[in-house]
Simulated assay, not measured.
Amino acid sequence: MMATPDGRRVRPYLATRGRTRPVQDIAIEALVSTTQDGRTHGSDPEPERERILRLCHSPRSVAEVAAIVSMPLGVARVLVADLETEGMVRVADPHAAFAGSEEPARNLSVLERVRDGLRRL
């Protein structure tokens, strides 16, 4: 169960309108950041989406978003995917730095940050 701003408890699937799968596959370690459109869109009528938009002014992994907003990981993935489709957030695959490279990337700070965030859960 998730809490609304006024303290009432609601079932997580209500936030996703009953959907259990995101419109596109998003890894739990993918980094989510609010776009300029997401920052200036005004108040979102759905509190979970609004919390994600505010939280991701600094990049956060999907797993961090779920933990901080206190929602199941599946719900977070659905909402983040919806926000990305609407252009409100950008989702970056941290593994993309390794793709197409002849040498392994030397900067592992992004992956270390995700690991550390997951450990704090």
Rank of each mutant, 00 (worst) to 15 (best):
P5Y: 09
T16W: 00
R17T: 12
G87H: 08
P12M: 12
R113H: 09
R113C: 03
A63K: 08
P45V: 08
R39D: 09
R119E: 14
H95F: 14
M2Y: 10
E103D: 02
H95C: 12
N107W: 02
T4R: 04
L79M: 15
L14F: 15
A99N: 08
A63D: 08
S33K: 07
V91A: 02
V89S: 04
R9E: 07
G18L: 05
V75S: 05
H95S: 14
A92V: 13
V75C: 12
V110N: 00
G42Y: 06
R51Y: 06
D37N: 06
A76G: 03
V110A: 10
P94F: 11
E86D: 12
R60P: 01
T40P: 05
I52P: 00
A66Y: 02
G117R: 01
Q24K: 13
P22W: 06
A92S: 10
T35L: 10
R60H: 13
L108D: 14
V78T: 02
A76F: 05
V80G: 00
V10F: 05
E112P: 06
L83I: 11
L79V: 15
E64H: 14
R39H: 15
I26L: 15
V75H: 00
L79D: 06
A30S: 14
D25V: 15
G38V: 05
L79K: 14
E64S: 15
V23F: 06
L79T: 08
P45G: 04
E48T: 01
A67C: 13
A76R: 00
E84L: 02
A99W: 14
S61W: 02
D116G: 00
R51I: 00
E102Q: 03
A81H: 13
R115M: 01
P5C: 04
S33H: 11
A81V: 11
A66K: 00
L111Y: 12
G42E: 03
H41R: 12
C56H: 05
P94E: 14
R39T: 09
L111M: 13
M88Q: 07
V91L: 08
H41I: 11
R8Q: 10
E84H: 09
T16L: 05
A67I: 07
I26V: 15
P45Y: 10
R54L: 04
R60A: 01
T35G: 12
L118H: 03
V80W: 03
D25I: 15
Q36M: 04
R119K: 09
E84F: 01
S101A: 15
V65T: 13
L118N: 04
S101Q: 09
R9A: 07
G117V: 10
E103I: 00
R49E: 14
R19G: 01
V62G: 01
G7V: 08
E84W: 01
D116H: 10
L118E: 07
R113I: 02
E84V: 05
R51G: 00
R49M: 13
D44Q: 02
S33F: 02
D82G: 11
